[in-house]
């Protein structure tokens, strides 16, 4: 497993004070909070940050971590020392929700209480009920077309000696067609099993989308960047475009330009009500790589007295 340099993640010196660590955490948390940040890897950075802070803010855990030294060189495998854990006691299971890396868990144990983890998601939730909560990254096509997807969740279970260990559990879930990012699928009875204290809990799966090959998602609307040739934009054309319901012919009006947008009402995510699909035109220039193409460009230049810089006054 990979060694994690918590000081480096938080951007603090190894002798940083508690106050410095707290300040660093606050600053980075604001920058990378997944609900606020538009940074590309915000979710992963925020997760690392939460883990680093969990260790460094706690004097017991920090002392234990410091005992490991600087860790192996980058890329080298890390294994906890054999005498690890003797002499340290960690109080509580931690009060912070969130997933911890294998590295963290090998040092400080797994977190108790109900948590699942999607194949790309991170577990969160907790609380004392029998419900389980997970957040998964879903491919957009599952929402556009419906269908089944298998998720592997990590759920806590008690072993024979009463220790908490996490077990993998694979679920095949029917994805409701038209589900939107931020929505939740509720699977009744799929949380913790029933006990003498109460009935089985439910499993709640919060959905986020992976980036799609060509659609961008805006709520229930889809945005498709549509490359067109200059003559298609200028003269008008009918071009084939993908939509969630299948390919359609889209009429490009004459005199269109880069940035022109065409709305296909009701062709977005098939939610209730369905979203719209926007085609954003982007003019693609054919390369002038052979004599024929060069001649065509020259003919155009000769035929059209066109000054694209007319408003620059030069």
């Amino acid at each position: 497993m990979e060694f994690k340099d918590y000081y480096k993640i938080m951007g603090v010196a190894r002798d940083a004070t508690e106050a410095q660590i707290k300040t660093a955490y606050r600053k980075l948390a604001r920058k990378y909070h997944p609900d606020v940040s538009k940074e590309k890897d915000a979710e992963a950075r925020f997760k690392d940050l939460g883990e680093a802070y969990e260790v460094l803010k706690n004097p017991e855990k920090r002392a234990a971590y410091d005992q490991l030294g600087q860790g192996p060189r980058p890329g080298e495998q890390f294994r906890p020392p054999p005498d690890w854990g003797s002499g340290f006691e960690f109080s509580g299971a931690g009060d912070q929700d969130g997933a911890y890396s294998d590295f963290f868990e090998s040092l400080f144990g797994r977190q108790a209480r109900g948590r699942g983890r999607g194949p790309h998601g991170y577990p969160f939730g907790g609380g004392h009920s029998a419900d389980h909560h997970a957040r998964v990254l879903l491919d957009l096509d599952a929402s556009l077309h419906g269908g089944q997807r298998a998720f592997t969740l990590r759920v806590p279970a008690l072993d024979a000696e009463g220790h908490v260990e996490s077990k993998e559990r694979t679920l095949n879930v029917q994805i409701p067609k038209g589900i939107l990012a931020g929505q939740t699928i509720r699977l009744p009875g799929q949380g913790a099993p029933a006990t003498e204290h109460g009935p089985a809990g439910d499993l709640f799966i919060e959905i986020e989308f992976q980036p799609h090959r060509y659609y961008r998602v805006d709520g229930r609307d889809l945005i498709l960047t549509l490359p067109v040739a200059p003559w298609e934009a200028s003269l008008g054309a009918s071009v084939a475009i993908p939509t969630p319901g299948g390919a359609v012919q889209l009429k490009i009006p004459p005199g269109s330009h880069s940035g022109s947008k065409l709305r296909l009402r009701g062709r977005g995510i098939p939610a209730t009500p369905p979203g719209d699909l926007y085609a954003l035109l982007e003019i693609a220039l054919p390369p002038a790589t052979d004599d024929k193409a060069k001649a065509a460009y020259l003919a155009m230049a000769a035929a059209m007295p066109f000054n694209p810089r007319a408003n620059l006054e030069v």
Binding site: T170, N172, V173, Q174, I179, T184, I185, R186
Partner: peptide
């Protein structure tokens, strides 16, 4: 996320309640 032979579980979208 691949197709699987497990029985598929169906649920509702809570936000649409």
């Amino acid at each position: 996320m691949t197709q699987s032979t497990l029985e598929a579980l169906s649920g509702e979208i809570v936000e649409e309640t």
